[in-house]
Every structure is written in structure tokens, then in C-alpha cells.
Design a protein around this nucleic acid. Structure first.
Length: 490
RNA sequence: GGUCUCUUAGCCGAGUGGUUAGGCACCGGUCUGCAAAACCGUUUACGGCGGUUCGAAUCCGCCAGAGACCUCCA
């Protein structure tokens, strides 16, 4: 099926038809985590958003090279008294090697992304592994006259750049406003203009992470790594660059400027930005006390959480909001998502057991068409999910004998749900994992429930209720049905 | 202060110039020895005030409120 995918391009502020530069190949770059802290809820949003994009493009038959970087150097910390590399600062506090910190949190990130069923990217480059390339790009920018040296550091000359190119196009800013509005920050006196930003920063004596260069012992500036790694792995022109909305300015704006200031013709065709998450209507922030790590979410240990929430609940919940809207986390909303997802999975089990009739009493191709329309409309997963729920209603009606499905439609419907629920939305049923506690356990539970069934037939309610209550206490949920029982583990 | 976005029923969250989003909760029902689960049905909307229009929750203006970025952050 030929699909026309529309995506919202932050650059044009419009939905545009997605047309790859070199079909069937698609280059996708997404800003990954800074690995100086435990993965939190905020990391889940972009990871899941672009996971959907990656999965859908792959489903459409594109050969996608998905690059998602690991930022392990180069992010200056300006709220502190001195401009110190974040990683280095944390390392000193913990008395660890910087690379030890980086490795630890990278591993943690991977673990939790796997839990969320986020596919690994094709390439996951690290900033620290591309110092040479970053220095090379600085030389190019210097050679082209868009940067200057000051006290061993190299700054990007935004004012000069703005005369030849437009600076601020992505984030809708103009340079005059910015010059009059910028506050006094660290290193300002080294800069010619307040809007200039660092390409290379000379390391202070206490700064542990440092690399030699012809300018000074130091480290690369904030924005350089993405310019460099995007170019290295996806070429001078590539299709999609994604990231959180908070990165639009200055990070992505600076990235564009760096790219344009280089030799060659650098260009990203589509810029995509996911919106942020809030918790009980508030921005998530360390200072606000509502900063929830993924570990806390899964074990329910944060004081704002009434219960643990499984990674799939988080994923499903995030997918029930459109990626360009903010999404608000609250216990009530999460519990609603948890139940809704359960209903979807129950229906998928039902679908597997349905019996076909001569013909269908509903139009399957219409549902299929609607599902594709939804995902094609800038990855509108909430609408997609609503159509899947419409199908749930039909599946249940068929089970109840109030609707019918033909043999071929049944096969197609199974395929449709497999494609959308598992392949594209990337949801996985968690009950199957729980049920994998062993064949023996399964047999034993079945045995007990068969005994209960007999007790019920003998109207021995005392025995049947005892079995039910005690199994329930052990975490086995019993569902009595018309012709017997079903059960699942909590 | 600057730039921008948002405001939808009890909660979350889509969308559209005139026709049911969806999920959860509530309520009613089916099923059941009772219950749970499951399923079916159903109620409550579009921040306020103006304007454009045959018609606006959807377009425009003003007001109020919330948020984002401008400063490390996804």
C-alpha cells in the first residue's frame, strides 16, 4: 500500500509531505541524552516519539539509518559559578572517572529504553569519540571567517554569520532582539557579542575532561557534536532531524549556523520537535520536587506516585497524546491509560480466538484506511489508537455473536492489529511475560481452578471461594466465563 | 521584558466552519451462587466578551488564566 506521510516541519511551521532525498534511504538524526544522570520521564518522550517514526518509516519500506547520539562531553553548566563541563563536575563529586560516570548512565539509559520497547538506533555515536571531527569543523568555520579565537577559546561569530545567512529562522528570533535582551553570562567578556557561542572552550585547571588542540587544552562547545555526527553518518544533506522542543533554541539554531558556516552545502530537510511533559500540570524540574526517574516510575517509589506503573503503561500513555502537545502525568491519567491498554490487549487475545463466518458485518478496509490516515497525519497516534478501540468494540461484538467476520477478513484483521499495535506503536503485552513463570505453575493453577469448577458444580461455595480468594492473594486474577474460567497473573 | 504556544465535559486527550473522537470514571444493563472480570448502552464539553458568517467550539480582535523558550534541561 502506497502511503503519503505528512510530517510537521518546525522550519516551515507547516505539515509537509515526506519525500526522502534519496529514497528508499532515509537519514534520521535525533538528539539523545546527556548521560550525567539517571534516565527520567523526560527522556521517554523523544525516545518514544522518534521510535514511532523509525518504526513507521521502516514499515513503509524505507531503509532508515537512525542516528541518536550520546552526549558525554561538552555541555557547559552556566547556572554554576564557573563554566564547568557537566560530566566533569559530577565525576568530581562522585570521585569517579568521567568515563565511568558516562558508561554507568549510558547503560542505565539503555536498560530503561529497552523496557519502554524503544528500538536501538542504527548508530549511537558519542561526542567524546568525535573530538577530532569536531576540531576539524572548527577549522572549517575559522577558515570561512565565521569564528574567532579569544583567550584560547573559539567562538562562533553570530553577528557576522547573520549578515550572510539568516540566524534564528528555526526558532523565530531576530538577532537585534537577542542582543538587547541577552543577560550577562559566564565568558561574556571573551565574546565579541553576547549572542556568540563557544565552539571550543579552554579548560580551567580543575576541569578533568580535556583534549589537546592548537588553540588550547579544552573541550568542544555545546552544539558542535550534533553538527559533526549528523554530517559524518548521514551526509551533508539528510532528511529528518528531531529532538525536544527545548532544544530548538539555542541548540538546533546553533547547529544550523555551524552547518551553514562549514564548507559544503549542509542541509536538513525536516526538523521535528516533540513537546515536553508536565507532572500534575507543572513542568518537571529538579527544583520542583517532581522530578521522577524511570526507575521510580517502575517501582512506584516516588512520593507523587500512588502505585508503580509499568513501562508499557508509560509508553501507551505517551502515545495517547500527540507528540507536539504537552502531556500531563497524573495518577488518575496513568491509571486510566493502564486500564485502557489492558482492554486493548484483552481484545487482541479475543481476536486470536474468534471464529469466522461466511461474511463480515462491518467494513474492515475502512478501519484499515482510517488507521493509516491517522498515522500519516503527522504521526497522530491518539487518533490511531481511537480507531483501534473502535475495532475492539467490533471484536467483542463478534465474540458475543452480534457481529460476524469472514475468513479472509479475520486473517487481515489479525495482521492489521499485529502491524499497528506491535510493529508501529511498539506495544508489548506484559501479561505474557508474567505467564512465563513456568509450565508447571500454569498446570498447577489450571488444576486448582478445575477443582474449584467442580466444587461450584456441587454448589460447594466454601471450597470454591477458598480457592478463589487464596489464589487471588497469591496474585492470580481469576475471570469466570460462561463455559469455564480464564486467569492471568497480576 | 522579548518570542511563541495553549485553554475542550469528573480526569486524560483528539478533531472539525454545519454530522459520535477515543480512553478512564460515573450511571444503567447482560453474565454470575455471590463477587470479580468481561461485555453492551449512556450522561455531562469546547476560558470570558465582542466581531465575521445563513451557521463558530472551529476564523478574527480584546480580556483572563496556564505553559514553553530566551539560562543547564527531553
Amino acid at each position: 500500500m502506497q502511503q503519503e506521510l505528512y510530517i510537521y516541519n518546525s522550519l516551515s511551521r507547516k505539515k509537509e509531505v515526506f519525500e526522502p532525498i534519496n529514497a528508499p534511504h532515509v537519514g534520521l538524526y535525533v538528539c539523545g541524552p546527556t548521560v550525567y544522570g539517571d534516565p527520567h520521564l523526560g527522556h521517554a518522550r523523544p525516545a518514544i516519539t522518534f521510535d514511532i517514526l523509525f518504526r513507521y518509516l521502516t514499515h513503509l519500506g524505507y531503509k532508515v539509518r537512525y542516528v541518536r547520539n550520546i552526549t558525554d562531553v561538552g555541555h557547559l553548566e552556566n547556572d554554576a559559578d564557573e563554566g564547568e563541563d557537566k560530566i566533569a563536575k559530577k565525576a568530581r563529586l562522585d570521585q569517579l572517572e568521567p568515563m565511568e560516570v558516562v558508561q554507568y548512565y549510558t547503560n542505565r539509559y539503555h536498560t530503561y529504553m529497552q523496557g519502554l520497547n524503544v528500538l536501538p538506533p542504527s548508530i549511537e555515536p558519542k561526542a567524546s569519540g568525535h573530538i577530532i571531527e569536531q576540531q576539524e569543523m572548527i577549522r572549517e568555520i575559522l577558515k570561512n571567517g565565521y569564528a574567532y579565537e579569544s583567550n584560547g577559546s573559539i567562538y562562533f561569530d553570530v553577528v557576522k554569520y547573520n549578515k550572510d545567512h539568516k540566524y534564528g529562522e528555526l526558532s523565530g528570533r531576530n538577532i537585534e532582539d537577542m542582543i538587547s535582551n541577552t543577560r550577562t553570562l559566564d565568558g561574556q567578556d571573551e565574546k565579541q557579542n553576547s549572542v556568540d557561542f563557544a565552539l571550543w572552550k579552554k579548560a580551567a585547571p580543575e576541569h578533568i575532561m580535556r583534549w589537546p588542540s592548537e588553540w588550547s587544552e579544552g573541550f568542544p562547545g555545546w552544539h558542535l557534536e550534533c553538527s559533526v555526527m549528523g554530517r559524518k553518518y548521514l551526509g551533508e544533506q539528510f532528511d529528518i532531524h528531531g529532538g525536544g522542543m527545548d532544544l530548538k533554541f539555542p541548540h538546533h539554531e546553533c547547529e544550523i549556523a555551524q552547518n551553514n558556516a562549514c564548507d559544503g552545502d549542509m542541509n536538513v530537510k525536516y526538523w521535528m520537535h516533540n513537546n515536553m511533559i508536565t507532572i500534575n500540570g507543572q513542568k518537571m524540574g529538579k527544583s520542583l520536587g517532581n522530578f521522577i526517574t524511570l526507575e521510580q516510575f517502575v517501582d512506584g517509589s516516588h512520593e507523587l506516585l500512588e502505585q508503580p506503573y509499568s513501562p508499557m503503561t508509560i509508553r501507551f500513555f505517551i502515545l495517547q497524546a500527540h507528540y507536539r502537545s504537552t502531556v500531563d502525568f497524573s495518577n488518575e491519567a496513568l491509571q486510566a491509560a493502564e486500564k485502557g491498554m489492558q482492554r486493548l490487549f484483552t481484545a487482541l487475545n479475543t481476536l486470536e480466538k474468534l471464529k469466522a463466518s461466511d461474511k463480515s458485518s462491518f467494513n474492515l478496509s475502512e478501519i484499515k484506511e482510517k488507521c493509516y490516515q491517522a498515522i500519516n497525519d503527522d504521526l497522530n497516534c491518539p487518533i490511531l489508537i481511537s480507531h483501534l478501540f473502535d475495532g475492539v468494540k467490533i471484536i467483542n461484538s463478534i465474540k458475543d455473536g452480534k457481529a460476524t467476520i469472514s475468513d479472509s477478513d479475520l486473517a487481515e484483521m489479525k495482521e492489521l492489529y499485529k502491524t499497528f499495535v506491535f510493529d508501529i506503536l511498539g506495544l508489548v503485552s506484559e501479561n505474557n511475560e508474567a505467564g512465563a513463570s513456568g509450565k508447571l505453575t500454569e498446570s498447577l493453577i489450571d488444576l486448582l481452578l478445575n477443582i474449584r469448577q467442580q466444587a461450584k458444580q456441587n454448589k460447594d461455595w466454601a471450597t470454591s471461594d477458598k480457592v478463589r480468594d487464596e489464589l487471588k492473594a497469591l496474585g492470580v486474577i481469576i475471570k469466570d466465563t460462561k463455559d469455564g474460567f480464564e486467569w492471568e497473573l497480576e
